[in-house]
Design a protein around this nucleic acid. Structure first.
Lengths: 191, 191
DNA sequence: CCCTAGTGTGTACATCAGTACAGTCTTTTC
DNA sequence: GAAAAGACTGTACTGATGTACACACTAGGG
């Protein structure tokens, strides 16, 4: 009658390890072909664990993608926060597009999977939308809203092309495009 | 001994109907959760047909995505070919980004699925790469290579954002961004 | 009009996946 | 140190899925 006796998990951090393993499996196999068993094996965890911690595979994937979005958002914001001038801000955007930290091949694969999956899972759709807004917010540290919106499109689209193109990123071209947008896109019509 | 006697299928066009049905199923359910049976039902075709015409599900999906890429490429090129001046070319790019013809919600869903799947299927990767090059080629009708590359990123990235944002496209902003790139991105460094 | 060769189909099967749950282990309290 | 309560696991089960293949159908030729 001492109230709840145990509230501490035997293996703390287990949940996160499962989520990381899930992302590994998704990156390697795609969401189609991702199974409880593959994730359990990767995480060195018994199969039963997955149904214990998660409410089915959809829930597990949703939480894994949420974790991914979090990590990427942090990186996105950190990259922009380091910039101390307008010039450095432009350079930061170029870094986001060309890497090497952000938008690695694995990242892009996962992002593709997430976007595809988001169209069939409301929770992941919400996560994705939130991520978009956080990116906008980070860009707002240095750029007016309209410019930020256009730049975010670049950060989104360019690595996608690179993923399939296989050509190394042309930093000069990216920098020129970023600069063209920063200097050439006017403020909202109201001004 | 009359050589091959029959070379005409009993039901010509059946294959294409299956591929169209496959795209419908993918758009509605996602590649994960796409099954032979769902496609067969949608196409009003017996299950055995699918293994008769296609070499497994991967092959079917690959051909379905190839069909999608073809259709989209045609539309992309047609839109740009209509433009008769530099100004009209810019407007055409804005149309590609904002619709209504190109990049509908269904299109975007399918494109996401295709990109995700391409990372796990070499044939679809090739299809995707080819599509990218065809887009570049179409843009080359009006723009120098560097500008075309940057514009293509916009055509790719902007509808993606719109898909999740749910906000109607801001044509003025898109037009301004396109214009900024066309006028602000210099030719290759060699010049 | 029947025969043939190629087109197409219904069904059955082996496999695998998601999930539930009876049972085991671990930690805490007294 | 033992008992209890919650944390965790091994396994079994149901259903669905990809695929093969023996069979039926259709269209020409003689």
């Amino acid at each position: 009658m001492t109230g709840t006796r145990r509230e501490v998990p035997n293996d703390p951090g287990r949940k996160d390890r499962i989520l990381d393993a899930a992302l590994d499996v998704i990156a390697e196999w795609g969401v189609h072909r991702t199974t409880h068993r593959k994730i359990a094996e990767r995480a060195r965890v018994p199969l039963g664990s997955l149904t214990y911690y998660f409410d089915g595979l959809d829930d597990l994937l949703a939480q894994a993608f949420a974790r991914l979005a979090d990590t990427m958002s942090e990186l996105y914001r950190a990259t922009l926060q380091k910039a101390a001038s307008a010039q450095e801000a432009e350079a930061a955007v170029v870094d986001l597009i060309c890497g090497p930290a952000y938008a690695t091949a694995r990242d892009m694969t996962l992002i593709f999977e997430m976007y595809a999956y988001a169209n069939h899972n409301p929770a992941v759709a919400t996560t994705t939308r939130a991520w978009l807004h956080r990116s906008r917010g980070s860009l707002a540290l240095h750029f007016p809203p309209h410019v930020g919106q256009a730049l975010d499109v670049l950060v989104e689209g360019w690595p996608m092309h690179r993923t399939f193109d296989r050509t190394p990123p042309d930093r000069a071209l990216v920098a020129a495009t970023v600069h063209a947008i920063v200097t050439g896109v006017p403020s909202p019509s109201g001004t």
